[in-house]
Design a protein around this nucleic acid. Structure first.
Lengths: 337, 337
DNA sequence: TTGAAAGCGCTAACAC
DNA sequence: GTGTTAGCGCTTTCAA
C-alpha cells in the first residue's frame, strides 16, 4: 500500500531549516525568492533539502499570513449543458494562465442556489468570486455583499455595485436574423425563446424584433419554452402545426436548437429547404449537427479573460458587452466553404 | 461603489468574543457546536454578535489548526467535451452532498499535464485528489506519490498503490455490439476506435471482438482516429469508400459518433437502413442526434459517488469496475418507444 | 546575508 | 460553562 505507507509526517519549513542549518527566514526567502537576498550557495543547499525531505509549503499557513488564497470561486449552471461546459473550459484556461486556482460549484441555473453559493464560497476565503449567472433582474436585490470582489458574467444587464460582463446579445441576434431576412430573402422569422429567466422581453428577442423592424417586416410567431433540447423539440410542435408554417426560425440557444432539429427531422421536413434554422451560442457541437447550425457565437474566451482580470483587479462596477461572431453554416441555406 | 466601501476590515473571532464579552474559546465552541458545551443564552448572544459584525470564519486559519481544508482536487480533461462535462456535474453533485468543495483543473487529456496538476493540487493542501484520468499504462510509472489520497476514475486498468474506478467497458461494448449482431442480424460490425491512449487493444475493442467471437462471426474492419467529432467524421470516410460497405458500426465515443453521423448524412446514406450506428458514453446529447443514438451508457453518478467516497475514506487500493447501461434508440434500428 | 521572534486567526487542551 | 493559552506553518520586520 504505497501511498499510505509513504505518508509519514508533514515536513515543515522548520524541518528544512533545521536540516540545512539555517533559519526559517532564509528558507522562506528562498521559496519566495525574496523579499531579502540569499547567498547563492545557501539557496542551493536549501533547495537540496527541500528535495531530499520532500517539503511542500502549507498553503493554509501562507494564506493565513498573506491574506490571499490564490483561489477564485467560480459558480456556474453546470457543465452538462455543453455551452456552459465550454464556458467553464474558457475559465480554466484563463485562470491557469493567470496563476489562480478555481474552486467550482454549480447552481443548476437556480438563482437561490447561486446566491447561497456566493455565501458559501465567500466563507471559504476565496480571493474573489465569478458567477456565470442565472439571475433575472428580479433576483439581484437578493444578493448579499460577500465583502470580496464579486463579478457576474453571462449577465445581460448591469447590476448596481458589481462588475457585469455579457455578450452583446441584441446585436448578435439582430445579425443572425438579418442574415436570414436580407441574405436568404425570408419575409419572416419565427422565434423559439427561453421562458425561464424573465417576463420582460429579453435581448435575443429584442435583436430578432429589431432585425424585422429595420427591413419594415412584421416579426413572426414566438414560442417560449425552457432552455433544454426537449424544450426546443416541443416548441417546434406548436410552430409547425398551424397551416402557415414559418420558412425560418431563430432558436435562442444551441441546446434548444438541437431539439428543434430533431423535431423537424421527425416530421420529415428538410432543413433548410422546408425550414431554415439558426441559433444562439455557437457551441462546438453546433458544427456537427445535421445540418450544421448557423449561429451567433458567444465570445467565451474574451468574456472569461475579462472576468478573471476583473475579479483579480477588483475593478470598479461597470457593465461590459462583448461582440458576438456570426458563423455561417448549412442550416440557414449557406453552402459549406 | 458598494462592495468596496463595505469592505472595511476583516472581522475576526476575537472581535466577536470582545463584542459579546466572552472568551474566544466560547465563540469557537458555538461556531463548531463543540467540543465543549455552551449555555444556551450565551450561544444566542454570540450568534447575534456574529450576525451584527458580519463575522465569517477564516478557513485558512481553521485548516492550519485542523489539518484539513474540506477541499478535494478534481482533475479532468475539460468540460468542452460534453461527456466530461456531464462527468464533472456528477462530481459537483456528489461532492456538494458530501460537504466537500472541489478545486478543479483541466488536463486537456494530456498525461503530463495531469501529472503536473497532481503536484500542483497537492501543494494547495487539498484533502485528496480525484483524477478523471487520461493516462495510459505507460504513463502510470510517472506518477509521483502526492502524500495525500489520490484516486483515478475513468480508469480501465488497476494502478498499483492507488484506487481506480472505471466503467465495465468490455461488458458494455460487448452488449451493444451483440445487440447489433444478435438482435438486428448484422453479420459484422465495423469499429471506429480512439487511437490516442494506447497501442494495446483497449477494452472497448475487446468487447467488440468478443461479441463477434461468441457468435462465431469474424469481426469487421477497424479504423483508429482521435476522440473528437472530426475524428469520427474522417473515420467514416475510410470505412465507406471500399466497395463493401459495412452494414453497422460501433463508434467508441459519443463525440466521435456525432462526427460519424454527420459524415454519413453528408454522403446521403440513411441511418440505420444503409448503416446502423451505435456508440459508447451515452451523453444527454446522444438522445438528440439524428437519429438518436443507441449507446452503452456510462454510470457517471455511481462512479462519481464511488470516487468521492473513496478519496474521503482513503480506502485501500482496489480496482472497481461499474456496469454500464444499454440504451436502445433509433440509430441501431430499434423503434422509439 | 542571516537569525530571532512576533504574529496571521483559529482550535482545543487544560484550568478554574 | 467559561477563560487562558499554546501552538498549527508560515512571512517578515528588525537586529545583528
Amino acid at each position: 500500500m504505497a501511498p499510505t505507507s509513504a505518508r509519514p509526517r508533514k515536513v515543515t519549513l522548520a524541518d528544512v531549516a533545521r536540516y540545512t542549518g539555517v533559519s526559517t527566514a532564509v528558507v522562506s526567502y528562498v521559496i519566495n525568492d525574496g523579499p531579502r537576498p540569499v547567498a547563492a550557495e545557501t539557496a542551493l543547499r536549501v533547495r537540496e533539502a527541500i528535495d531530499v525531505l520532500g517539503y511542500r509549503p502549507n498553503t493554509s499557513a501562507r494564506a493565513l499570513m498573506t491574506g490571499s488564497t490564490g483561489i477564485v470561486g467560480l459558480i456556474h449552471p453546470g457543465t452538462s449543458n455543453p455551452f456552459f461546459g465550454e464556458y467553464g473550459d474558457a475559465f480554466y484556461k484563463v485562470a491557469t494562465e493567470a496563476g489562480v486556482a478555481l474552486l467550482t460549484a454549480t447552481s443548476a441555473g437556480r438563482a437561490d442556489t447561486e446566491r447561497a453559493l456566493i455565501e458559501s464560497l465567500a466563507s471559504r476565503n476565496v480571493d474573489g468570486i465569478i458567477s456565470v449567472t442565472s439571475m433575472t433582474k428580479a433576483d439581484i436585490s437578493g444578493i448579499r455583499n460577500p465583502r470580496i470582489p464579486l463579478l457576474f458574467v453571462n449577465c445581460p444587464f448591469p447590476i448596481p455595485g458589481y462588475q457585469t460582463i455579457g455578450p452583446n446579445a441584441i446585436d448578435g441576434s439582430l445579425r443572425v436574423v438579418d442574415h436570414l431576412l436580407a441574405h436568404h430573402g425570408h419575409r419572416q422569422v419565427a422565434l423559439v425563446a427561453g421562458g425561464t429567466r424573465s417576463e420582460e422581453p429579453e435581448e435575443r428577442q429584442l435583436g430578432w424584433l429589431e432585425a424585422h423592424r429595420r427591413l419594415g417586416l412584421a416579426a413572426g410567431p414566438v414560442v417560449r419554452t425552457s432552455y433544454t433540447a426537449d424544450g426546443g423539440y416541443d416548441a417546434i410542435g406548436s410552430l409547425l402545426d398551424p397551416p402557415e408554417r414559418p420558412s425560418a426560425v431563430f432558436v435562442t440557444s444551441d441546446l434548444q436548437a438541437f431539439g428543434a432539429l430533431h423535431a423537424i427531422h421527425d416530421r420529415g421536413l428538410r432543413i433548410p429547404d422546408d425550414i431554415a434554422v439558426v441559433s444562439f451560442d455557437g457551441t462546438e457541437a453546433s458544427a456537427h449537427t445535421w445540418p450544421p447550425l448557423t449561429v451567433a457565437q458567444q465570445p467565451l474566451h474574451s468574456m472569461a479573460a475579462a472576468g478573471v482580470a476583473g475579479v483579480m483587479s477588483d475593478a470598479a462596477p461597470t457593465h461590459t458587452l462583448i461582440d458576438m461572431n456570426l458563423v455561417l453554416r448549412r442550416s440557414c441555406g449557406c453552402e459549406p466553404p
